[in-house]
Design a protein around this nucleic acid. Structure first.
Lengths: 263, 263
DNA sequence: TTGTCTTATTTTGTATGCAAGAAAAGTCAA
DNA sequence: TTGACTTTTCTTGCATACAAAATAAGACAA
């Protein structure tokens, strides 16, 4: 007979999770850049557990698509070349547009409330940013609500497999962002301010359209508006990334034409 | 200095792979049904390795989506309820349609040759089946070429992430097939023969349309024809599965309306 | 110096031991 | 018998030991 059975306050895989979060954080914060060799002994010491849970954590992170394990050669932070980046964007465009489409059909009242709340928070934040002097905390909060908006749609779609897939792509995308795109931020921060405010209004407008289409239960419109929104975001990522093309050893001339530029 | 460095004839993760293939085979052949408890000690004995590689194999299989690991409670063959099955079908429909669309744009000559070859083989086999008495080996070969056809399109799409995703869904689907659908085969094999031949011709016709759209570089047509083809396949799976609904403890009345029946 | 062979060190892959949690069996009152 | 409590057995999670492979360092001839 079970004592307390399931969902008692047990520590579940404590060490493996610990190692997993430790490594994931290091990767996503840019401390371990793409190609960084992830040696089990070092990681075990740094994260304070033994090699076994570290190995399991690495497998877990491989699943998440941010670590690459080659037998006998060990694990390293996933190297992302231009082709893979393009593939990731293609897939994300398709899956997230689809999630908007599904959300328009399947959403519950709570889903709508969540999406709307994220949207309205962004609206307020963008409003504040028109006149604010200390923009950094506002921008950070804006990014948070942006993610919340997209996540709420993903939840409203009601497909857990789809959600897991998209979240995986987001993680993948984060590595690109932290390592290849954020690098430019300092360079053009001078002109960014006014430029970005215009862009923020544009993003807000996109979100408004997407939200309304979902709320009105118009799947096709939701899909289209989400598609346009993401295409815009992705195109910008690509441009930013292209500036750092030197960092991509696998960049070939043939890869220059992007699929989303043609559609 | 490296001796022979990379890609020498090294045995890579021999034991883990061994355990992985052993377990995967058992699951996909139906020997370990959904919910089957996968105990490390037993698997270690059966597959002839120790517990460590078995654990790693289980993690691997979890990433493939066919095993479910709950901390402290151990691993078991993934239980698939109707909702998850529906989600899987939704996703597969979207992703494979997309792969046809991409294939129409990105295919190389070799891709077309491969797709065409699979198609023509199927054509010949269906022709033979019109008059054949011993149909089983022919049907088996037909299934093989069918998979080859879809795989060739996936390759032609030129997106490795997409491909990996779809292959994962196929694996997922295989579990459903072997455990919930194949069960019916014996029951209606009597009427199946003539019925199935009609269906084979229909599938062949679908493939022809898909192949031609891809070859002619018509992405939209390729997507649409692939979508219709898969919708047909999936709908049939659902019907077959519904016959065994008793086996799905999570089946709810609310789940009965299927998204693909409405579109 | 440079290139090649040999030796030493590091790191991975695997097996195994042990503690703590979960499942099963046993015990006993109603 | 049933139901709750206790005890036993089993299983997982983690640490560690060890062999084999890979990497790095050293030796030595040209």
């Amino acid at each position: 007979m079970p004592r307390k059975s399931l969902s008692s306050g047990t520590v579940e895989n404590a060490h493996t999770n610990q190692a997993c979060e430790f490594i994931r954080h290091k990767i996503l914060s840019g401390a371990y850049p793409p190609g960084y060799r992830l040696k089990t002994i070092a990681l075990a010491k740094e994260s304070g557990v033994s090699r076994t849970p570290v190995r399991e954590a690495l497998r877990q992170l491989q699943t998440e698509g941010i670590v690459d394990i080659r037998p006998r050669l060990g694990a390293c932070v996933r190297e992302i070349n231009f082709r893979e980046f393009k593939e990731m964007c293609e897939l994300r465009l398709t899956l997230e547009s689809f999630s908007a489409e599904l959300a328009a059909t399947n959403h519950s009242l709570e889903d709508i409330v969540e999406i709307q709340d994220a949207f309205e928070n962004m609206q307020v934040l963008v409003g504040k940013l028109e006149t604010a002097t200390e923009i950094d905390p506002l921008v950070q909060e804006l990014a948070k609500q942006d993610i919340r908006f997209h996540l709420a749609i993903l939840n409203a779609a009601g497909n857990s497999l789809l959600k897991a897939d998209v979240l995986r792509l987001h993680l993948f995308n984060k590595i690109v962002n932290i390592n290849f795109i954020r690098l430019n931020r300092d360079n053009d921060s001078a002109l960014a301010n006014t430029d970005n405010q215009e862009r923020r209004r544009w993003v807000l407008e996109c979100h408004r359209k997407i939200f309304e289409a979902i709320k009105a239960r118009q799947p096709e419109a939701a899909r289209q508006t989400m598609r346009e929104h993401l295409k815009d975001i992705i195109d910008r990522s690509v441009i930013a990334m292209a500036r750092n093309e030197k960092r991509f050893e696998s960049l070939r001339a043939a890869d220059s034409e992007l699929f989303y530029a043609s559609t």
